[in-house]
């Protein structure tokens, strides 16, 4: 069985960052579940902070630097992508959106994606569903049903009798995501050559000029 490739994209800006912390926890939960199913997993975490300047330059020049191109290629080639952003001004951060603005709109079609966000208070938790989920719906990615929001307070509390705590949400998200990744990976055939030429006769025929 081939090794599954997971890429986690963290848009956290500080170091250490709770966004990165959440990304790592989601990776861990997914990896654990896939290991149970005897999948070998290779994980890479991309910190967008290190690419922030390259991302801005790509907007100005129209092409990515070598490092940014590699990062984009890793994300689009992954069997599953875990994305975590801090909430800035009521939505995903500009850096997070800018990175995905540079990904070809069809490159994540069908790719399983696990959504995560962090913020100062739980009052922003719907950002997962009003910002992140539509973004990845546009990209036609397969988002895991459970997305995880971690407010500052979540790192110091368990659940209560009405709500599950952060660890439970992470475990559930990891399980769902792992199932999705395994299902999609098993169905993936040999990759098609995206650069295949459409013969000119076909191009003319499409215009009924043959």
């Amino acid at each position: 069985m081939r090794t599954l490739k997971l890429v986690a994209v963290s848009a956290g800006l500080s170091s250490p960052s709770s966004t990165r912390l959440l990304a790592d926890r989601l990776v861990q939960a997914t990896r654990y579940r896939l290991a149970e199913q005897e999948y070998a997993v290779d994980v890479e975490v991309l910190e967008l902070r290190g690419l922030a300047v390259d991302i801005a330059k790509n907007f100005v020049t129209g092409f990515p630097s070598e490092a940014l191109r590699e990062a984009i290629d890793k994300v689009t080639a992954a069997d599953g992508v875990i994305t975590v952003t801090p909430v800035f001004t009521a939505s995903y951060s500009g850096l997070f959106k800018s990175f995905f603005d540079l990904v070809d709109p069809t490159a994540l079609t069908g790719t399983p994606v696990l959504l995560g966000a962090t913020g100062g208070t739980a009052r922003h938790s719907l950002v997962l569903d009003h910002a992140l989920r539509p973004l990845f719906a546009y990209l036609r990615a397969r988002t895991a049903p459970t997305a995880v929001y971690a407010a500052s307070e979540d790192w110091g509390t368990g659940g209560d009798e009405y709500t599950e705590g952060l660890p439970h949400r992470i475990t559930r998200a990891g399980e769902e995501f792992a199932t999705l990744v395994a299902a999609v990976a098993d169905r993936k055939g040999d990759s098609v050559d995206a650069d295949e030429v459409v013969p000119f006769a076909k191009q003319l025929a499409d215009l009924r000029l043959d």
Partner: peptide
């Protein structure tokens, strides 16, 4: 756009690569 390279090849015309501003 590979379609344009294909078009140039089909007719035996020349192909010109912009080769400025891009890698």
């Amino acid at each position: 756009s590979p379609e344009i390279a294909e078009q140039a090849a089909y007719y035996g015309d020349g192909f010109f690569a912009n080769h400025i501003f891009w890698p």
